[in-house]
Design a protein around this nucleic acid. Structure first.
Length: 263
DNA sequence: AATACTGTTCGCGA
DNA sequence: CTCGCGAACAGTAT
């Protein structure tokens, strides 16, 4: 489900809802959804929330942190009462309120890890878009022969962009998604950099895209899907030139672009 | 009814 | 090393 804008939205909401609360009980309904010993964090207080790329981190007032990846369909829901969610995998009962992991496809995971392992875990993925300078961005380009869409989605280079925003960004930058990364001109790299910043910022403003399953912690939808430039707009008219938006597969993922604007 | 598709990532074999 | 593909899983759309 979530790419950077969705995870950032979840983080912002949860900061208002769970900070300084204590984890009183943890119930696990799907064993694979929680990794690590829950005893290590029972009775501990939530001190801060962090995010890198699509990873969310909850830091506690002891030596442990909780690290969360929502994968395709994970939702983090907060409520003052116990909710009956259809795909409930984990419940964190707090001293006031509940935090739920609801996850249709069961790919999402929550790991309990020691704080000294946290850095190591975070270093596995590339620079977050919030920390991406043009200099850093340029350097990453050096010799990737991948197509540019796969490059943008490769979390080891830059972290945070997934399938929806990759198409949106490339449309804004007027770059064909199949273009080889090492074939991009300097001017295109510059356009791409600004398109990344712009689309991600806009998506955060609209609190993410709920084209399917994504929900904010209050169970409401984000609204970026009402502003899609190309994503899920196959055969509809391009807003720039009125050509029909095309859909192709890149690495088996749907990719939307305007064949006229993105040559 | 069968098949395609879905916001992610990992591991395997080429 | 990089790549493309299947798997992890469960639902909806066509």
């Amino acid at each position: 489900m979530p790419e950077l804008p969705e995870v950032e939205t979840i983080k912002k909401y949860l900061e208002k809802l769970i900070l300084n609360k204590k984890i009183v009980v943890i119930e696990v309904f799907n064993k694979n959804s929680l990794r690590g010993e829950k005893k290590l964090i029972l009775g501990k207080k939530i001190k801060s929330l962090k995010r890198k790329g699509k990873l969310l981190v909850i830091e506690l007032n002891n030596d442990y942190s909780i690290i969360i990846h929502l994968k395709m369909s994970g939702q983090l829901i907060y409520s003052n009462k116990r909710e009956n969610l259809k795909y409930l995998r984990i419940v964190f009962k707090l001293n006031k309120g509940y935090l739920f992991l609801n996850d249709l496809r069961k790919f999402a995971w929550i790991k309990i890890i020691k704080k000294d392992e946290l850095k190591k875990e975070m270093d596995k993925i590339g620079v977050d878009i919030f920390d991406l300078s043009f200099k850093k961005f340029q350097k990453l380009f050096k010799k990737s022969k991948q197509n540019i869409k796969s490059f943008l989605m490769n979390q080891k280079k830059i972290s945070g962009i997934g399938n929806i925003y990759a198409s949106e960004i490339l449309f804004l930058a007027k770059i064909n998604p199949l273009k080889k990364t090492n074939d991009l001109k300097d001017s295109e790299i510059k356009k791409l950099f600004f398109a990344i910043k712009k689309i991600i910022k806009k998506a955060i403003k609209y609190e993410g895209s709920s084209s399917r399953l994504y929900l904010k912690p209050n169970q409401q939808k984000g609204s970026y899907q009402e502003h899609f430039l190309v994503y899920q707009r196959e055969n509809e008219n391009c807003y720039q030139c009125q050509s029909k938006i095309k859909r192709i597969k890149i690495n088996n993922r749907s990719t939307f672009y305007c064949p006229n604007c993105q040559k």
